[in-house]
Design a protein around this nucleic acid. Structure first.
Length: 293
DNA sequence: AACCTCTTCAACCGCTCTCGA
DNA sequence: CTCGAGAGCGGTTGAAGAGGT
């Protein structure tokens, strides 16, 4: 039924990765570096995966510096705002949250934020009378919503637990990161910063694995993380405007500006995190948003 | 306890983009 | 300029677990 799979060959394994496969892949990348994915299946023994699967596994799960689960309020705000600005350009959005993968952000958006925003929109539309000089369409935030009708449940933040062999993988990664400068996947172009700081954060495999977290932590990480996470929306918007709406994944330095200008997102974040906020506050704050929203 | 429904997210798929020959 | 291979992206799927009846 449907389209033939890209790797529909005998001997090509699909489905969830095992810890053993992870170790093989990490070992290979430790030796050769990420990239040239085509050669990964042929040059590894016991890894019966297609190149795409290997790349995906690495970029979304095994790559050092990935933070999983427990999105912070700032991260949520960033995602919401960037999604409103960029649409479903998950890779572009992920470039502003280097610790998060595009897949993770996409999933989080689809399972949590979209529902939250829909509740937000409902509250906004049902409780707030029209303000003078506005229309319902012009005053509403231009967030896009899916057709989800089941929005009653409160989202839960869960961290993904992982199979047993993460310590082995972490050791491999640890030694690799100690010996070689990282070359990260291309779509996180701003990781040039990371290369300088060697600032990666662990936690790739869930909260339970404190050992992994410890192994993968580096001193400068938190500074870098803070600078990314507290990036103001204004600076992001400037990027987008300056670059004519093209993918905006460069110039991280410019993102380290102050966040004291009371960006328009602040209130939305507040509302999303504290749904007891009154709809009037929501309305007033949304109306102050720049026209491009 | 058993069954059903819903939610989550890792992984897959096909399309598009990029780049070298 | 054209073509092909490889890489990247965004949409979608489905297994597994949680929660409800």
């Amino acid at each position: 039924m449907g389209r033939p799979p890209c790797c529909d060959k005998d001997g090509i394994k699909k489905g969830p990765w095992t810890p053993e496969e992870d170790i093989i892949l990490v070992s290979y990348i430790q030796e050769h570096g990420p990239g040239n994915w085509r050669s990964v299946p042929t040059n590894t023994v016991g890894l019966q995966r297609c190149s795409k699967s290997c790349r995906l596994r690495w970029t979304n799960y095994l790559r050092p510096g990935i933070k999983r689960g427990n999105f912070t309020p700032h991260e949520e705000g960033m995602i919401i705002h960037l999604q409103a600005l960029l649409g479903n350009k998950w890779a572009a959005i992920a470039s502003y949250l280097p610790q998060r993968t595009d897949n993770d952000i996409k999933n989080y958006w689809n399972t949590h934020l979209k529902k939250k925003l829909k509740r937000f929109q409902s509250a906004f539309q049902t409780q707030e009378p029209q303000l003078p000089g506005t229309t319902s369409t012009s005053s509403s935030p231009h967030y896009k919503f899916g057709n989800d009708d089941n929005v009653a449940t409160q989202p839960q933040l869960t961290s993904t637990c992982y199979a047993s062999s993460t310590e082995n993988i972490s050791r491999l990664l640890e030694s690799w990161m100690k010996c070689s400068p990282i070359s990260n996947p291309k779509h996180h172009d701003n990781d040039d910063n990371n290369n300088n700081n060697t600032s990666y954060h662990g936690g790739c495999v869930g909260e339970q694995d404190d050992h992994f977290e410890t192994l993968m932590s580096f001193d400068n990480l938190n500074d870098h993380k803070e600078s990314m996470v507290t990036t103001t929306c204004d600076s992001v918007e400037e990027d987008i405007i300056n670059e004519g709406g093209n993918k905006v994944n460069e110039n991280i330095d410019s993102m380290e500006e102050d966040d004291e200008n009371n960006p328009p997102l602040t209130f939305l974040e507040k509302w999303l995190l504290d749904e007891s906020t009154t709809s009037r506050q929501v309305t007033e704050e949304i109306l102050r948003l720049p026209s491009m929203f």
